[in-house]
Structures are given as C-alpha cells and as structure tokens.
C-alpha cells in the first residue's frame, strides 16, 4: 500500500505544487513551499522503496542536479537581467501600476520566473540530499 502510494504520489504533488505557484502571488504559497512538497513526495518514495527502488521507479530523479543548477541560474538570471536595462537587480517587470496579463490567478510577470527557479532549485537540492544520504548507506551496506 505505502509502496503504491509512494510510486504514485509524485504526480499529484506536482499538480499541487503547480497550483501553489500559480496562485502564489495572490494567496498562500510560493515556489519554495511548492518545491518542498514535491521533495516530500520524493522522500516518501525513498523511504518506501529504498534508494535503488525509488530511482528505478522514478527515473526522472537523476536530473535532480540539473534541476538544482538550472533553477539557480533561472532565478539569478531573472534577478540580474534588470542590470542590462539599467535598473537595480531584482527589479521586476511589469513595474508598479502597469498592467499584468493574467490567466485565472496566474500572473505572467518576472517574479513567476523567479519563483519557478526557486521551485526547481529546492526540488533539485533536496533530492540530491536524499540521494546522497540514502545511496551512501546502501553502498556502505554492500
């Protein structure tokens, strides 16, 4: 039972995280919380299936380092691109008072990129952490 849930949970957790990010600016939740929630689902997989089992069941996990680095780069890029336009870092666009295109509660503006970067980074970092703690133990046991 736990194993079945552990296999299936990452999917819904991603949906939930997407929801948190989409309404992040309007209501409770942000990229960080969304990232930790997905990572918790991954953690459950590690606990229930073991490192080897979890990584076999969820092959996408091996991209975690890329997600971490890519997320950091995305966040840094969205933070520092205003420098190219002559603004201080972390100046978000559109500016105060300007119109923001929205799809439901999802606002299309640069903080969204920032949030996505944080989200990816948190998933990546925590997954790598779990991987190391679980893997090294299995390796030691062998």
């Amino acid at each position: 039972m736990v194993r079945v849930i552990a296999r299936l949970l990452p999917g819904p957790s991603l949906m939930f995280a997407a929801g948190l990010i989409a309404k992040g600016y309007a209501e409770v939740g942000d990229g960080f919380a969304a990232g930790v929630i997905v990572a918790l689902a991954v953690a459950l997989a590690y606990v229930a299936l073991g490192a080897a089992g979890a990584e076999a069941a969820l092959p996408a996990l091996r991209h975690a380092p890329k997600a971490a680095v890519g997320g950091l780069l995305l966040a840094l890029a969205s933070g520092f691109f205003p420098l190219l336009l002559g603004d201080p870092p972390v100046t978000h666009r559109p500016g105060p008072g300007e119109h923001v295109t929205t799809i439901g509660t999802l606002e299309l503006f640069t903080p969204l990129l920032f949030d996505l970067g944080v989200f990816l980074l948190v998933i990546g970092v925590l997954t790598v952490l779990l991987h190391h703690l679980a893997r090294s133990r299995e390796e030691a046991a062998r």
Binding site: G24, Y25, A26, E27, V28, G29, D30, G31, F32, V90, H92, P94, P96, G97, V100, E107, F109, P111, F114, D115
Partner: peptide, 14 residues
C-alpha cells in the same frame, strides 16, 4: 503595487 496579494511571497520574491 507589486501585483501581489500575499505579502510573504512578495517580500521573498520582490
């Protein structure tokens, strides 16, 4: 003015 409703998120991101 930062297009947000949730002050914590706006502080963190902006």
């Amino acid at each position: 003015s930062a297009h947000g409703g949730d002050v914590v998120t706006v502080i963190v991101a902006d």
